[in-house]
């Protein structure tokens, strides 16, 4: 029986009158690599943001390692969020800090790691994503692919238990998608628990152990990748796939 890392119970999110997430329940186990797919506007980003409470759910519970995050104060959430790494579509690197400082800021300020140790670990992570030579560069001088690799390293610097990716390659030029996916594949191989919102069906198929198909404010299907791509059960998923494969 694998360890339950995230448990989502009857999660509902409304923006005003619009229900964006309707009564969703789901579980992420340790070591899972889950690809979340679905048409744009389906609520995938909102779902991911609700998991770390960047968005406050309108109803339901989110458990992280058995601990309910809903109802926690901002101060308490600070403690929890460091366990969940987040990678954004637009990188969101801090332009006022060097690459190295982007990586060391949170370990030093939040984890109170001493500066030398934080630097050492940051350099090792940069090595891991292939950017050791960019430690002293500033984000503006990097390409999109490099920025996203730094962003992944920055999230990893907090040694999170789980990593959430929100379309990490959607803002990249096609020739840079590969270098980012390679880093993510390696992470998966190393056993990191990951939830990845993506339009990269190749990645979903070859790397993840589950595909969650979202549409119409709900997760319509949770299946193994092979089954999802060859015999999707819902009609909506079939439509979605045929559209994707056409383009």
């Amino acid at each position: 029986m694998p360890k339950e890392l995230i448990k989502i119970e009857n999660l509902t999110k409304k923006f005003g009158e619009n229900t964006i997430l309707k009564n969703i329940s789901a579980v992420v186990n340790e070591g899972d690599v889950i690809s979340v797919v679905g048409p744009s506007g389906a609520g995938k980003s909102t779902f991911l943001r609700c998991i770390t409470l960047l968005e406050k759910p309108s109803g339901g519970n989110v458990f992280l390692e058995g601990d309910n995050l809903v109802g926690k104060s901002d101060k308490e959430l600070e403690q929890v969020r460091q366990k969940v790494g987040m990678v954004f579509q637009n990188f969101n690197l801090f332009p006022n800090l060097s690459v190295l400082q982007n990586l060391t800021l949170a370990p030093i300020k939040v984890k109170k790691t001493n500066e030398a140790q934080a630097k050492k670990e940051a350099l090792a992570l940069l090595e891991q994503v292939g950017l050791a030579d960019k430690a002293d560069a500033y984000p503006e001088s990097l390409s999109g692919g490099q920025k996203q690799r730094v962003a992944i390293a920055r999230a990893l610097a907090m040694k999170p238990d789980v990593m959430l990716f929100d379309e990490p390659t959607s803002a990249l030029d096609p020739e840079m998608v590969g270098e980012v996916l390679d880093v993510m594949k390696q992470l998966a191989k190393d056993g990191m628990t990951m939830v990845v919102v993506t339009h990269e069906m190749g990645f979903a198929k070859s790397v993840s152990n589950q595909v969650w198909f979202m549409e119409n404010a709900d997760i319509q299907e949770k299946t193994e990748p092979n089954q999802f791509f060859e015999q999707p059960t819902t009609e909506r998923a079939q439509e979605f796939l045929s559209k994707i494969l056409e383009s």
């Binding site: 101060k75 929890v80 969020r81 907090m158």
Partner: peptide
Amino acid sequence: IDKGQTEAAQSLGLSSRDQMRFVIMPQ
């Protein structure tokens, strides 16, 4: 300053004071 900056800082677990001091204010 883009909202994404605050979200990135938040998701790293920085306190709202540190977010302001090290990320938002300098920019």
